[in-house]
Design a protein around this nucleic acid. Structure first.
Length: 615
DNA sequence: TTTAGGG
DNA sequence: CCCTAAA
């Protein structure tokens, strides 16, 4: 979560594909695989996780206190016909404060018109229901749909496919976010707003800070006893073109916005969320089925309701595809298919002097953060949070009286964690010339830092105020600790007191918890900055201590695992060995590649000749 | 959980 | 990036 100042842009309806997150981080094509098919809540959670959606609390007029993500995003609604007003009362807050947690309903739609389309409907807090393909609710002429109560965040979708979409609430007076949700193009989506909040952002560059020599904190354990000199000599021997070059540092001068742009482009292109082959075997539809239609059926009790065309929106900004529930004890499968969904509304704060490239990147990060990982899916049943993951749907009563079972999902941050980066200063491998390079960060980075600084001043979050507004929690065994007040209130994006580095830290983090589904992580190319950080860390720690490398240089980059670093190193070595013409992707400065080779050579020797030192 | 490598 | 055998 980042609370930024400067220029504020809000992006409405930035459409993104559903990106389920697996154990670690990610986005991108991914696979959602279901291993077991029991209809447990857990399964629901996973499915739900596929469609994430955040609700950006946007109504806080007080910029200083603006907190994004304090609301969990409620999205998927299954067979919910009744308004949640009654229930929502318990967690509703007049000022949009975090008291109401995720369970509040943003709007309730009752889709009854098959085949009708709804576009740009329902924008609560900037969230939009995305009507794509067929089977979407038609937006009502009067535009009611898009007027939703800001405080209510869950969109309920009726399973039946008949009727007219209609909002139950219409409190929001936001108009700005109206119907501009189609494309993520900056022009179309940005609209200046002021002093508003923040959003999650990923920490692509966090490592950078960690990389910089700072007070020690060696969690990594003892560093190799490598004589500084010898190291130097090693690299020096190979270099002259290696170490020496670094003093120029020109490599960082290159505007990496280019890379960023590519990155964005690439990202957008790889938004494809799942691996078709693995996605939800039981269902007939594939992830590629972008149209948001749902052929699911709801079957509570004995009555079956064909949910053809029930698609509609998934909560706040997601589109749901299909669902199916059976009552029986044997054949009861509940199927959900959540297609793409839109990112609610992103607020970006960026200095006027920022470059377009950095803006793009910022947006990218914001989106990434939102779709990233660390999300926790909550299941709401009749407005109450179901916390026992082990209960079956039946036990929970979800597959019974359809009238009373309003099932909803919400996304919320797992828990916030801020890990100050650490980095030991002595580099056994490099000489000071390197430090110079390292310290010289790319423009974009600087920009970011500034941004962070700014936000730092305004990132005060009040989780405290989350006390009572909580949902009525269905008393269950599991997850209690994790889902108590704190986390509940924090909703998707909590903004803890931030500091430069903390900002970079992903606001929510969670552990993989649904082993049933595995999704491929989205590809996230290493930026030059990251490569630099990696190189530096490896120079210092060697090639066999990825965990330490991770801790030292990428501790805050949750999306980079030590395995990733190891893999990256592997590719870097390879890259360094091939001709520049053969290299692809963002160009890594030759200087860095040289260092890679040098370090690789050095540490290889160290490894082979155990305690022996090279040269 | 980490490493180390192949895929 | 993923998957895994080993450690």
């Amino acid at each position: 979560m980042v609370l930024l100042k400067n220029l504020n842009y809000s992006f409405n309806g930035y459409q993104v594909p559903v990106i389920p997150k697996a154990s670690r981080t990610t986005r991108g094509r991914g696979t959602v695989r279901k291993k077991s098919e029991d209809n447990q809540i857990q399964a629901f959670e996973i499915l739900a996780s596929v469609a994430g959606n955040f609700l950006q609390e946007n109504k806080n007029s007080n910029a200083e206190n603006a907190v994004a993500g304090k609301d969990s995003i409620g999205f998927v609604g299954i067979n919910i016909k009744d308004k949640q007003e009654e229930e929502s009362g318990s967690f509703k807050s007049d000022d949009g404060c975090c008291s109401e947690n995720a369970s509040s309903s943003v709007s309730s739609l009752e889709g009854k018109n098959n085949g009708q389309r709804v576009e740009g409907c329902s924008s609560f807090l900037g969230n939009r229901l995305e009507g794509r393909g067929q089977n979407v609710f038609e937006k009502e002429a009067d535009g009611l749909i898009k007027e939703n109560c800001v405080n209510e965040k869950t969109v309920y979708v009726t399973g039946s496919s008949a009727g007219v979409s209609k909002p139950d609430h219409r409190a929001s007076k936001r108009e700005s976010s109206e119907n501009s949700f189609e494309k993520p193009s900056l022009e179309g989506l940005i609209h200046g707003s002021s002093g508003r909040k923040l959003f999650n952002r990923d920490d692509d560059e966090n490592f950078a800070r960690c990389t910089q020599p700072r007070s020690k904190n060696r969690n990594s354990g003892p560093l190799p006893d490598m004589p500084f000199q010898s190291v130097n000599s090693v690299s020096a021997s190979k270099s002259r073109d290696v170490g020496q070059k670094s003093k120029n540092g020109s490599l960082y001068g290159s505007d990496d916005s280019i890379g960023r742009d590519n990155y964005m482009l690439e990202s957008s292109q790889r938004m494809y969320p799942f691996k078709k082959r693995k996605f939800f075997k039981q269902t007939s539809f594939s992830a590629s089925d972008r149209g948001s239609h749902c052929r699911g059926r709801f079957d509570f009790s004995d009555t079956r309701i064909d949910g053809v065309n029930c698609s509609a929106a998934i909560g706040a900004s997601s589109s749901i595809a299909g669902q199916q529930m059976h009552t029986g004890s044997r054949d009861c499968n509940v199927k959900l298919s959540i297609k793409s969904f839109k990112v609610p509304e992103l607020f970006i704060d960026i200095p006027e002097t920022a470059t377009i490239g950095s803006l793009k990147r910022t947006v990218m990060e914001a989106v990434t953060a939102i779709l990233g990982d660390e999300l926790h899916v909550g299941i709401l049943l009749q407005g109450k949070k179901v916390q026992d993951d082990n209960k079956t749907l039946i036990q929970t009563g979800i597959s019974q009286d359809d009238k009373h079972h309003r099932l909803g999902f919400m996304l919320e941050p797992r828990h916030t964690k801020i890990t100050p980066p650490s980095y030991s200063e002595d580099l056994p491998f490099r000489t000071t010339s390197l430090h110079r390079d390292i310290s010289r960060k790319p423009t974009s980075l600087m920009l970011q830092q500034r941004t962070y600084n700014v936000s730092q001043e305004h990132s005060l979050i009040k989780f405290e105020s989350c006390g009572e507004g909580d949902l009525n929690v269905v008393p269950t065994l599991a997850d209690t600790s994790r889902n108590n007040t704190m986390s509940k209130c924090r909703a998707l994006v909590a903004v803890p007191a931030i500091d430069m580095e903390a900002l970079a830290v992903i606001p929510f983090c969670h552990k993989p918890r649904n082993p049933d589904f595995v999704q491929r992580r989205i590809r996230r190319p290493f930026s030059v900055s990251e490569v630099e950080a990696l190189v530096q860390a490896v120079e210092k720690l060697g090639t066999g201590r990825w965990r330490d490398v991770k801790q030292c240089a990428f501790d805050n980059a949750k999306h980079r695992t030590y395995v990733d670093l190891k893999d990256k190193w592997k590719t870097l070595v390879h890259t360094a060995r091939i001709s520049p013409q053969q290299r692809r992707g963002e160009h890594v400065p030759q200087e860095l590649l040289d260092r890679v080779l040098a370090a690789h050579a050095y540490w290889s020797q160290q490894q082979c000749k155990h305690p022996v030192k090279p040269l």
